[in-house]
């Protein structure tokens, strides 16, 4: 897509010598009357052609949008939810024509698969899991990991989908006797899985055998950290965490992300990078997403900020647009675009 609309650039962070920029590629509005809660990009096959489509989720409806030639988006499928509201979209890599969603009020109560019947293309939804679900993540090789329950009653399950999203296989992972907060796949090591726990540990599993390999205690300065990504390099694990509960400090302001390096053999860890806001920006971490080495966060101020983890600093800031605060930010799974959403259903697609 070429840029035809407003260009919104950067904002040089502190001592940035190479400011990044965000270029608006296209935008559309989901006219649903309920609150917009999530956005994602998926591959969807129609008439034998796989297309990069956008999924939007409001509290009571999930919609699939396909691209038209004119930088417009057309809504082609909707799934309605009348009993339990939608909390988040759970993309499952390597599966076509299937989306998972988590439903609940404050906590996840159900995970459902959304798909279309092959004959008449009518929308279907299938209940995959129900209960007190603490964390869920779609993994490569068509897998979905979820943890149900807390402490000693916790069950951690891996579900594997068939290529067409159909029949599935289930496997259990050894629970760590600590409540799991988030999961993260390890780039460069497909059979490893990380989890963060409520007592500030990072746990490492072997996905093939289900074994719990190690618990690593991380710095107690930030509680309830979320693990977004992990990379395996040269015998070490590099882990990107965010800190929604962190308090502002005079020295650093509000920490958004940190990059930790962990030696899995010794369970020792060292912080190598702390991502804070550039001067003049205020707010705490609300939600965020990390793809490769680029991290994006929505701040409580309604602004989106982006950090390059290799350069080690903030490279772009996107202030609220049309007087509407940002509430969602996701990297597209189908290209290098950034999806930014507002509560009223406006979705903006930027090239970074």
């Amino acid at each position: 897509y070429s840029t035809e609309q407003t260009e919104i650039t950067d904002l040089p962070a502190c001592d940035s010598w190479n400011p990044g920029s965000l270029h608006l590629v296209s935008k559309f509005k989901n006219p649903s009357s309920s609150c917009s809660v999530d956005v994602s990009a998926v591959w969807w096959e129609r008439a034998g052609v796989k297309e990069p489509c956008i999924i939007t989720a409001c509290e009571d409806v999930v919609s699939l949008w396909k691209p038209l030639d004119t930088l417009q988006w057309e809504k082609v499928h909707t799934w309605q939810f009348t009993e339990v509201p939608v909390l988040q979209i759970v993309p499952v890599p390597d599966v076509y024509n299937l989306i998972c969603v988590a439903l609940g009020n404050l906590e996840i109560r159900e995970i459902r698969a959304l798909l279309c019947s092959s004959g008449d293309e009518s929308e279907k939804q299938v209940l995959l899991k129900s209960g007190n679900i603490k964390a869920v993540l779609g993994l490569t090789k068509r897998r979905l990991v979820s943890s149900i329950g807390t402490f000693c009653n916790q069950q951690i399950q891996i579900m594997t989908f068939a290529e067409d999203g159909g029949s599935k296989d289930e496997q259990l992972l050894m629970p760590p006797d600590e409540t799991i907060l988030t999961f993260a796949e390890v780039q460069g090591m497909q059979d490893a899985l990380l989890g963060t726990t409520t007592v500030n540990n990072i746990v490492i599993w072997n996905l093939k055998t289900g074994q719990l390999l190690k618990k690593v205690h991380i710095d107690d300065s930030y509680q309830a950290s979320i693990c977004h990504r992990a990379y395996s390099e040269m015998g070490l694990l590099f882990v990107v965490l965010s800190h929604p509960c962190a308090k502002e400090s005079q020295a650093f302001g509000s920490p958004m992300f940190q990059l930790l390096v962990i030696n899995p053999k010794t369970a020792q860890s060292v912080r190598v990078l702390l991502c804070c806001l550039p001067q003049g920006q205020a707010g705490r971490f609300l939600e965020g997403d990390v793809k490769d080495h680029i991290a994006a966060a929505v701040l409580t101020s309604g602004t989106i900020a982006i950090w390059d983890l290799l350069l080690g600093h903030c490279t772009a800031v996107l202030p609220p647009v049309s007087d509407q605060n940002w509430s969602l930010v996701k990297w597209s799974g189908t290209d290098s675009h950034l999806l930014a959403g507002q509560k009223d259903g406006n979705i903006f697609i930027y090239r970074y």
């Binding site: 490893a192 072997n206 053999k265």
Partner: peptide
């Protein structure tokens, strides 16, 4: 920070931990 703080590093940590951990 220094990688010395992390202790001895093994390139085969995943296989080694898998052989040591309970099944």
């Amino acid at each position: 920070c220094s990688t010395a703080d992390l202790g001895p590093i093994s390139l085969n940590w995943f296989e080694e931990l898998s052989s040591e951990a309970p099944p």
